[in-house]
């Protein structure tokens, strides 16, 4: 299945650069749109999953809400001023010109991977060393942002690790992951009681 990605962007450097990065994944099909109106028209006509890269001032607030309601569409803002971040309320990612290509591809993949209705089979694989490290932080109550800062990695990378942990273990919530980590001896309960952690 191909992954449709729309780019709305006036600046040539950003548009062409982004398109080039996205095309590294042969599954990605990149479409350049001239205006936000074209997107809105498209949104009304079609219903497949898409990722849309656009400037953060491209839409009015009401339009963003409208688009965000459609869970098949993931908006990603491209900002020339801000650093990359994820808005907690809307769930919208913002990337900056400093965001690495791997991270950009991850954002796209995570949207198309989350197959609605199609639940991913648990892979049951062992967690990697890095994933255990992340899990230890999660179970100890650290936020994604704090983990990112501690390990000098981006918040997108933390989120990708967490997604992988959930896929491997079948456990989604923080307290569920804490129980898992205790059961597997990934966190030590000698000095702290499970009741305080869970």
């Amino acid at each position: 299945m191909s992954c449709r990605i729309f780019i709305i962007q006036n600046e040539d450097i950003i548009r062409e650069g982004l398109a080039a990065i996205l095309k590294r994944n042969p599954l990605n099909e990149v479409v350049i749109l001239d205006s936000a109106d074209q997107l809105m028209k498209h949104v009304k006509e079609r219903s497949e999953k898409r990722v849309v890269f656009c400037p953060d001032d491209c839409f009015r607030h009401s339009a963003i809400e409208e688009i965000n309601k459609n869970r098949k569409i993931k908006l990603v803002f491209v900002s020339v001023r801000d650093n990359g971040f994820i808005d907690k309320n809307s769930g919208i990612s913002t990337i900056s010109i400093e965001t690495g290509s791997r991270e950009i591809l991850e954002i796209v993949n995570s949207h198309f991977d989350d197959g609605e209705g199609v639940k991913k089979e648990l892979t049951g694989e062992e967690l990697t060393k890095r994933e255990k490290e992340i899990l230890r932080f999660v179970a100890s109550g650290f936020s994604n942002k704090q983990i990112a800062d501690k390990l000098y990695i981006s918040i997108h990378t933390v989120i990708t690790h967490r997604k992988n942990i959930t896929e491997k273990t079948g456990i989604k919530s923080v307290s569920g992951l804490t129980v898992y980590a205790i059961l597997k001896g990934i966190i030590d309960t000698e000095n702290i009681s499970p009741a305080e952690l869970i």
Partner: peptide
């Protein structure tokens, strides 16, 4: 979150 935790409760029992 409320839904995720039921999923977790089940999976913890089934799997771990």
């Amino acid at each position: 979150n409320v839904e995720n935790q039921i999923n977790d409760l089940r999976n913890l029992l089934l799997m771990y």
